[in-house]
Structure formats: structure tokens, C-alpha cells
Design a protein around this nucleic acid. Structure first.
Length: 258
DNA sequence: AAGGTCGCCAACCGCTTGTCC
DNA sequence: TGGACAAGCGGTTGGCGACCT
């Protein structure tokens, strides 16, 4: 029998008295007051200092998901659902990344919404793209830029093949893709808040070099070269596919097709 | 009206990752 | 370099209200 360390004993003692279950309004107020005055650091010691019989983990979760400023509750819009479906198709169950593109939404809320609503709905990414194509066809004299069938190749393929060579639409044209990664992919997107992209999470601006760094990398790389030097229909299709996939038609069209 | 069932979602659990010493 | 700790993340659970029989 291994002798318990003092720390383990202390932890066990804390576990016995700690509150569990739903938070009361009084607990919420204590947590809000404490974080307002002292910041949201050191969750381990926060409960004792704030006078809460909760574990630090529970406090952190409560703050991040419900109490911190800017949290939206309920009423997920059709546009948000559309984006969740597209991002989930791209990223899988990476809820924090998905939530990062939906201002005011938490990973927990998106995860719950997906599991209770969207995962059961027989809507595919192709359905969304077909709908999008139909909208464009009605409003754009250029006609359909990419067929619904072509749109079935989504960005998951792109992500899965970063640093690999991969074939576009069976044309045997290889696009060696070594520069674009997830950080840059998100850096390409306009920030949903309307400001700069999320530098802390996606890196493009974390070093203060500006959000355009990612664009420059790509434009100087082989994607841009292949596109501008005898741009094939397949490559043009990929570009448009990318912009449509994410639903940022205008902005990405600027970066990829300008 | 009462008991059972189902769906939603807040909260918890366990694992992974990052940081510090 | 490795251990301890904090923080982050995704999966799962359990309470509760709504609905059904």
C-alpha cells in the first residue's frame, strides 16, 4: 500500500467538502465579484480566496461558459447553425476551434447544440453548398462557379493533406501545398467580430506582424503561382470551393481570386 | 392526476498539453 | 530532463422540465 502524500490527503479532504451540481445565484455573484477584482487566473486557489466551496475546475467552467462578459445564451441563428455545420465538417469535434469562430458562443454550448440538434439532422455539407449555389445562380449573372458535385470535396481534404501533394478533380495537376496550415486558414477569414482575426488563438497576429502575414505567405507560395500561371478550371474550382465552403464568399474571393 | 419517457443542457470527469522549476 | 501543476479540451452524466399515455 503506497502511503498517500500530504498533497493527496489535502486534495481528498477538499473533495469531500466541495459543492457539486447547479450553481446558486450567490455562488455566481461571489465568482463574478472575485474575477472582476482579481482576474481569472490561478483557478486552483481562486475558490478558497473567493469563499466558494467549489473546485477550481468547476469555477473556471462556470466563468467561461456562463458568467464572463459577452456570452450569448440560446437562440442559435440559422446562420450560426450553417457555420457550425460547415466548421464541423472541416474540423470534426474540435468544439473550441468551432466556438472560436462564433462570437459569444462557448464550446460547451456548441457541442450540446450539435449533439441534440444538428447531429440528428440529415443535412450534409453538400446540401448547404447546393443551397448556396442556388442562391448564387439566382443572383449572379456569372452563373454557377462550381457544381454541387465538385463542392463535395471539402476542406477536410485540404487539412488532411497539408504538406502532402494532392490531386485536384482528377486532372493530374498536383498542387504542392506546404505553407497553408490551420492557423493560416483561419487567418484568411475575416474575424466574425468585425475586427482583426483572433491572433491569440490562430497566430496570425500574435507576434504583432499583422493579419496579412498569412495572406502573403500563401500569395507568395505555390497556390498563388499555380493559380496565376495558367489557372486551370480545376484550380479555379478549388478556390471557389474554399470560399463557398466557409461561407465567406466576398472576402475570400478577394484573397484568392484577386 | 399521476407515473413514465424523452430531450435538453449544465456540470463533471478524465485525458492531454503547456509551463514552470 | 523530468516531475508537478495549471489550464484546456472533448466525452459523458445526471437533473429537470416538457410531453405522453
Amino acid at each position: 500500500m503506497v502511503k498517500k502524500t500530504e498533497r493527496a490527503k489535502q486534495k481528498a479532504a477538499v473533495d469531500i467538502v466541495v459543492n457539486r451540481g447547479a450553481w446558486t445565484a450567490e455562488e455566481d455573484q461571489k465568482l463574478v465579484d472575485y474575477v472582476r477584482d482579481h482576474g481569472d487566473k490561478n483557478w486552483r486557489t481562486l475558490p478558497a480566496k473567493a469563499g466558494l466551496n467549489r473546485c477550481g475546475k468547476s469555477c473556471r467552467l462556470r466563468w467561461l461558459n456562463y458568467l464572463r462578459p459577452g456570452i450569448k445564451r440560446g437562440n442559435i441563428s440559422d446562420e450560426e447553425e450553417d457555420l457550425i455545420i460547415r466548421l464541423h465538417n472541416l474540423l470534426g469535434n474540435r468544439w473550441s476551434l468551432i466556438a472560436g469562430r462564433l462570437p459569444g458562443r462557448t464550446d460547451n454550448e456548441i457541442k450540446n447544440h450539435w449533439n441534440t440538434h444538428l447531429s440528428r439532422r440529415p443535412v450534409t455539407i453538400d446540401d448547404l453548398n447546393l443551397k448556396l449555389n442556388q442562391q448564387v445562380e439566382r443572383t449572379c449573372e456569372r452563373g454557377p462557379l462550381v457544381s454541387p458535385v465538385a463542392s463535395s470535396r471539402d476542406l477536410t481534404t485540404l487539412v488532411d493533406h497539408v504538406e502532402d501533394e494532392w490531386v485536384l478533380d482528377g486532372t493530374a495537376e498536383l498542387l504542392h501545398q506546404s505553407e497553408l496550415d490551420m492557423d493560416q486558414l483561419f487567418a484568411l477569414m475575416p474575424d466574425p467580430d468585425g475586427g482583426a482575426s483572433n491572433g491569440s488563438e490562430f497566430g496570425a497576429e500574435a507576434d504583432g506582424s499583422g493579419g496579412e502575414e498569412g495572406y502573403r505567405d500563401i500569395n507568395e507560395g505555390e497556390i498563388s503561382g499555380a493559380k496565376t500561371e495558367g489557372c486551370s478550371d480545376a484550380q479555379a474550382g478549388w478556390d471557389v470551393d474554399l470560399e463557398r465552403f466557409m461561407g465567406y464568399d466576398d472576402d475570400l474571393a478577394f484573397y484568392f481570386l484577386d
